[in-house]
Design a protein around this nucleic acid. Structure first.
Lengths: 201, 201
DNA sequence: ACCTGAACACCGTTCAAGT
DNA sequence: ACCTGAACACCGTTCAAGT
């Protein structure tokens, strides 16, 4: 994560370009903050790029040079949270005999996706064109999921034919349904149905 | 369904308004056809209203007077298919001892939703604001689902706490996931996971 | 009554002009 | 180098002017 003032010291205060760089990095930080705030209010899809720029107090051109498209901006806003998910997977695997590690991780994944309205759709699009910045981060999450699925399979906690990609698709779908639902169906309820099935046991 | 020429006989050929009415109905039929064709090609969301009007050979104003919003137009395009779903539910319930009637009906529901890209999102939005024309039709589908769920529950084919609304949310979510998926995961596979659960049995 | 198409508002995106 | 904001293309939506 680039922080304000990082390259100012590196560049040297005497160099004429330095203040510009500091401005650029402050603008960048402001843009991410403005995007995060607008995502909170109206969701990732309804948040207009021009509105994000205006809220950050910069022109649209500045926004577009810092982030060449909305996917890159979205990836920057949710990046830390996605890293946290990968870390959580590692912790769950490292701790011995964690019961239902997979179920707990998937619940965290659904919580993450429902953080901002529209994220499920953003991820689905990113996963389709996997070469984008968000798609790259999604693949990292998928690798973490694959380890957890393999672990759960060894313990007999999931069907032997379940793949990590399928599980992520279902989790994303549940998050999408919860965010667009008419009634107050909680994502945890839908997730429970997915894990145990709608048929009686 | 309104067919070309229906009201011409009813209005009388001598009345000056009659040719206008015939024009109006031909335009209406052309608009629905153009919308259906464009939905096929680019999905319900990417289909621009102006493009639909242009393809039908009418001005945008004509489209907007026939269909006051996109939801009304969408409801017209998928109306017959939704009626078919309600009919199918009736048939499955009428025939005695149909095994897995519910599962077969939900599979048909998912096939319907995946007919046009974007339909899952259209339905989710329609279900949220249930007073629209599409929301009304969705409620009819929900009533059919409720009967099937009750029937399946009596036979012990589903969990006792499963509601029709939850099942429809899951079916819509699965359809959404299948249409936006990166890989070639078939909706039937995801539906199977939802019915039997990701845990081993 | 019904139709047409120009027109307005809005949003994504670019780029010439500034410092 | 970086920023600004005007500008263009596009889409949803409306409406005055026609027949």
């Amino acid at each position: 994560m680039v922080r304000e003032g990082d390259t100012v010291a590196a560049g040297g205060a005497a160099r004429p370009g330095a203040p510009r760089r500091r401005d650029a990095q402050r603008n960048r930080a402001r843009l991410v903050e403005a995007a995060s705030a607008l995502f909170d209010e109206v969701g990732t899809e309804a948040a207009a790029m021009n509105d994000i720029a205006r809220r950050a107090g910069v022109g649209p051109g500045t926004l577009w040079r810092h982030f060449p498209d909305k996917e890159t901006l979205t990836a920057e806003v949710v990046g830390q949270s996605l890293d946290d998910l990968a870390d959580l997977a590692g912790e769950l695997l490292a701790a011995p005999d964690q019961p239902d590690a997979l179920a707990r991780w998937v619940a965290a994944l659904v919580r993450h996706i429902t953080r901002y309205r529209g994220l499920a759709t953003s991820y689905a699009q990113a996963a389709r064109a996997a070469d984008g910045p968000l798609g790259a981060r999604c693949r990292a999450v998928e690798r973490a999921a694959a380890e957890l699925v393999a672990h759960a399979r060894e313990r007999g906690e999931v069907r032997a034919d379940l793949t990590a990609a399928e599980l992520i698709q279902l989790a994303t779908a549940v998050a999408w349904a919860a965010e667009t639902a008419a009634g107050p169906t909680a994502p945890t309820r839908l997730l429970d149905l997915v894990f145990h099935g709608v048929r009686p046991r």
